[in-house]
Design a protein around this nucleic acid. Structure first.
Lengths: 209, 209
DNA sequence: TTCCATATCCCCGAAAAAGGGTATTTTGTG
DNA sequence: CACAAAATACCCTTTTTCGGGGATATGGAA
């Protein structure tokens, strides 16, 4: 057998680092060579001692894993990166992949899957844990067509949600009440609703406020 | 020194179990005697071999940690329970404590704090990790006084949020539009708002819909 | 049984929103 | 610059909501 796969762990939770160490420990051909709890420390370590596979948490403080991923790729092109997170949000996963990650595993991953992910990543293949793969296979559930609102519309939407009337909003923004009403009508049209009540509900559901 | 503190871990993520094992491993006077990934397995194990301190994840599948806590307390009154979770929601923490837990640690806890928590719990004291304590000290931010709505009011509120007018709601519920309007006015009064927009926002914020 | 909360129904008038247009001025980006 | 998108402003009519009352049944808790 050749030299063991050198694995580096980046996660702000000591518990997770220990957990991964435990799960990979004793696995033949895999060696955890180090860990870091933030982006800066990780870069420092890797400059001194490179790794084959990096397990990178998405939710790091300060510099997020999503931002760190391309940086790592730029500095260490041959290094494989595995995304790591508690959350199985589609957007996270696909963003991570598009940043050059070789896979994505959830923190709920089993020992076998984690080992497999590391091995596959090292071989240059993509690995998604079962749960992750299932999510990605689903054809983007009818895709919530997030309505495209202009900044002014969002502004007025927020004020409507606060309970202000067209006149009050007009005063607040130093514009004509008629203008506010125009925006309001555009909002109703864009959100495909017939009154304020539904407008606010849809807006909140889509995180537009 | 007396017998070591026997620690049992309940968490559905193997990674977390390994992590805790790693953090407590080699700590004098503490011994991890077992672990389980679900409530049933935990009960089985503990019946055969009791523990001094249990680390119990809040977010278990099927039977949640919050529900399991009082059960454990009922079956093993002397056993100390430490809540464990990723989330630092006030409600979770206080509910766990009121269920008889001896403390609450986040999964972001440091090795030192985890050890301290286990030791304190074993001595019958309450231990909250730094971050948790900080949250609990804050005087419940003005506490959102959740408005008391009747079932009929909630029903009508939901229909309003769907975008129905008083007339449409009246038809749907086989009552007079005037009655719907009465309920609507009561809703405005109870939620202390002046129009539908604010009503829907407040309702959604409070999870009333 | 008495009382209170809930649910029901009604009136009026004023205010706001909705439906359906049109039109001018910024402003941002190719 | 040119062009499109965004923001601004206006008209008229109808519908809906809001603010302010008041009134009657009904069912459960004290």
């Amino acid at each position: 057998m050749s030299a063991p796969i050198k694995v580096f762990i980046i996660d702000d939770h000591p518990m997770v680092i220990e957990g991964i160490r435990g799960l990979l420990n004793g696995e033949p051909g895999i060696q955890v060579t180090g860990s870091a709890t933030d982006a800066f420390a990780a870069m420092e370590f890797l400059k001194a001692q490179t790794a084959d596979v990096v397990l990178l948490d998405i939710n790091l403080p300060e510099v997020s894993g999503l931002d760190l991923c391309p940086e790592l790729k730029a500095n260490f092109p041959d290094m494989k990166i595995l995304g790591l997170s508690t959350f199985k949000e589609r957007s996270f996963i696909s963003r991570m992949i598009s940043q050059g990650a070789s896979g994505y595993v959830l923190k709920s991953v089993s020992q076998e899957e984690l080992v497999e992910a590391v091995r596959q990543a090292y071989r240059g293949k993509m690995y998604l844990s079962m749960e992750v793969a299932q999510i990605m296979v689903q054809p983007e559930p009818a895709s919530a067509p997030v309505p495209m609102l202009t900044s002014r519309e969002k502004e007025i939407l927020a004020l409507i949600a606060e309970g202000l009337t067209n006149n009050q909003i007009a005063e607040r923004l130093f514009i004509s009440p008629l203008t506010v009403d125009s925006h309001r009508k555009n909002l109703l049209a864009k959100l495909e609703v017939k009154n304020t009540a539904a407008m606010i509900r849809i807006a909140l559901e889509h995180g537009l406020i």
